[in-house]
C-alpha cells in the first residue's frame, strides 16, 4: 500500500528519530555526546557481522547490536564523569572518530570498501515498533525516579548530589542507555541499506543527530522526535531546489537558533500541547 520511495523515507526518518532519542537520553542528564554516530556504527557492524557470518536470526542480531552499543556507552561514560560542557562534547566527538577509523582499518569488517551482502530484514514495522517501545519508555521515564535524577543532574549537579542522587551511577546509566538506543538504530540501518561503510557513521552523522535533538528542543523527548522527523523529511521536500538545498537547510537551522535557541518545542509550547500538565511538560 506504500510505495517503495515512501517506505524508504519513513525508515530513514524513523532511524533518525531513534538516533535523536539516543542523543536526548544522556543530554537529559546534562551529558552532551557528539559521538552517537560511533555507537550507531558499533550496532550496525555487530548486527551485520552476526547475520552475515553466523546466520544469526535478525532479532538476536538486533539485540546484540544494542548490547554492544550499551557496553561501549558504559565505557565511554567513565571519562565523562570527570568532564563537563565543551570538554565532554569534544571527547565524545573524538570517540566517534576513533570508532570510524577502527572500522576503516578492520579487514574483517571490509575496511574502507565497506561491508556488503547484509540480508534485507528491516521493515518499516520494525522501525515503527521500536519507536513505539521507545516512546513508551521515555513517557514512563520522565516521571520515574531515574528520569527525575537525570533532570536534577542536568539542572544543577551539586544540588542533585546534595539531594542524594548518585551522579556516577546516573551518568553511566544515561550513557549506556543512549548507547543501546544508538546501537539498535545502527542495526536497523544496516539491515535496510544492506551495505555499510565507516563513512556513513562519521562526524557528519554524529553532528546531525545532535542537531536534530537541539532543533526540536531539549525540554522533552518530543523535541528530539519532532526535530529529527522534520529535518530528515525536509531534504526530500526540498529536492526541487537542487544545489540550493544545503543553503536552505543551513539557513533554516541558523534562523531557528536565532529566533528560538531553545528549539521548536520549548516548555511553554509543551504546556499548551499537553494542557493536563503531563509530566514531560511539567519538567520543562
Amino acid at each position: 500500500m506504500l510505495s517503495d520511495h515512501t517506505v524508504s523515507i519513513l525508515i530513514f526518518a524513523g532511524i533518525d528519530v531513534i538516533m535523536a532519542l539516543s542523543f536526548y537520553l544522556p543530554a537529559s542528564a546534562g551529558q552532551l555526546s557528539a559521538g552517537q554516530g560511533g555507537f550507531m556504527a558499533l550496532g550496525a557492524y555487530t548486527a551485520a557481522y552476526l547475520t552475515v557470518q553466523h546466520g544469526t536470526p535478525f532479532p538476536l542480531a538486533l539485540a546484540a547490536g544494542g548490547l554492544v552499543g550499551g557496553l561501549v556507552g558504559l565505557a565511554v561514560g567513565f571519562p565523562a564523569l570527570r568532564l563537563r560542557g565543551l570538554y565532554l562534547v569534544l571527547v565524545t566527538f573524538g570517540f566517534g572518530e576513533m570508532i570510524r577509523v577502527l572500522f576503516l582499518n578492520a579487514p574483517a569488517f571490509g575496511g574502507p570498501a565497506g561491508f556488503a551482502g547484509i540480508p534485507p530484514a528491516t521493515t518499516v514495522w520494525h522501525v515503527l515498533g521500536l519507536l513505539v517501545v521507545l516512546l513508551y519508555f521515555f513517557t514512563r521515564l520522565s516521571g520515574s525516579r531515574m528520569g527525575r535524577a537525570f533532570a536534577a543532574l542536568r539542572d544543577d549537579e551539586a544540588a542533585a548530589e546534595a539531594m542524594g542522587v548518585n551522579s556516577t551511577y546516573v551518568k553511566l546509566a544515561a550513557f549506556a542507555a543512549g548507547g543501546v538506543i544508538a546501537g539498535l538504530g545502527g542495526a536497523l540501518y544496516a539491515h535496510y541499506t544492506l551495505f555499510i561503510d565507516p563513512e556513513a557513521f562519521g562526524v557528519g552523522r554524529s553532528l546531525f543527530v545532535m542537531l536534530y535533538a537541539v532543533f526540536g528542543g531539549l525540554a522533552s523527548f518530543w523535541g528530539a522526535v519532532a526535530g529529527a522527523a522534520i529535518l530528515s523529511i525536509l531534504p526530500e521536500l526540498l529536492r526541487w531546489v537542487k544545489d540550493w538545498r544545503e543553503i536552505f537547510y543551513g539557513l533554516l537551522v541558523l534562523t531557528m537558533m536565532l529566533v528560538r535557541p531553545q528549539g521548536l518545542l520549548d516548555a511553554a509550547l509543551l504546556a499548551r500541547l499537553f494542557p493536563r500538565g503531563e509530566r514531560a511538560a511539567a519538567r520543562g
Binding site: L32, G85, L86, V89, L207, M210, L211, V214, F215, L218, D243, W244, R245, E246, I247, F248, Y249, G250, L251, L252, V253, L254, M256, M257, L258, P261, Q262
Partner: peptide
C-alpha cells in the same frame, strides 16, 4: 553553549552549500 554550537553547524552547512553554488 549548545545553541551556539548548533548555530555554527548551521553556518557551516550554509557556507558549504553557498560555496558550491
Amino acid at each position: 553553549l549548545l545553541s551556539l554550537i548548533m548555530l555554527t553547524l548551521g553556518v557551516g552547512i550554509f557556507m558549504r552549500g553557498a560555496a558550491t553554488v
